[in-house]
Lab assay of single mutants.
Amino acid sequence: NQESVVAAQLIPINTALTLVMMTTRVVSPTGIPAEDIPRLISMQVNQVVPMGTTLMPDMVKGYA
């Protein structure tokens, strides 16, 4: 089963992602794949992401 990127903390809107903000977990439905974490660093979220929420492609500016 593929791991997806999950918020390790509350991420406010327009925050640039850092490694410490993200963790990985096997979730359903699947979100952004864990191997894309290096690509996500410094990208901004376009909404508030509560802790434990799976990051979906449409939540990250410039990802999709």
Rank of each mutant, 00 (worst) to 15 (best):
A8Q: 06
M51H: 12
Q9W: 07
A34Y: 07
M59K: 02
I11R: 01
T15V: 05
Y63I: 03
M43E: 04
T24S: 08
T18Q: 05
N46I: 08
I41Q: 08
L17K: 00
A7R: 02
V6Q: 08
T15F: 08
S28F: 10
A7C: 03
V27K: 08
T53I: 13
V20H: 10
I13T: 07
N46Q: 15
M22L: 14
L55M: 12
P50F: 14
S42D: 05
G52M: 14
P50E: 09
D58C: 15
Q9T: 13
T15M: 06
S42I: 02
S42H: 09
Y63V: 03
A34M: 10
M56N: 07
S4G: 04
A8F: 09
V60N: 02
I37K: 14
S42K: 08
M51Q: 12
N1A: 15
V26I: 09
I32P: 01
P12I: 03
L10V: 10
L40E: 00
I32D: 01
V26T: 15
G62R: 10
M56K: 14
Q2M: 12
V45M: 03
T53A: 10
V60L: 10
G52L: 09
M56W: 04
V45W: 02
P29K: 06
L17Q: 00
T18V: 04
N14A: 06
I32E: 00
V48F: 09
N1Y: 11
A8M: 14
P29T: 10
T53D: 10
Q47L: 08
A7M: 03
Q44N: 11
Q9D: 09
G31L: 02
E3G: 04
P50Y: 10
L19W: 12
G52Y: 07
T30V: 14
T18Y: 03
V5I: 08
R39C: 13
M21I: 03
V60K: 01
M59Y: 05
M43C: 04
S28Q: 15
Y63N: 13
I13V: 13
P33F: 11
L19S: 07
M51I: 09
S28L: 04
V20I: 09
G31P: 00
K61S: 08
I37H: 03
T24D: 03
M21H: 04
P29I: 14
R39T: 08
V5G: 01
M59A: 13
M22E: 00
A8R: 14
A8V: 06
Q47C: 07
P33V: 10
R39G: 08
T53Q: 08
P12T: 10
T24I: 12
S4Y: 14
S4V: 02
E35S: 13
V45T: 10
Q47H: 13
V49H: 01
G52I: 02
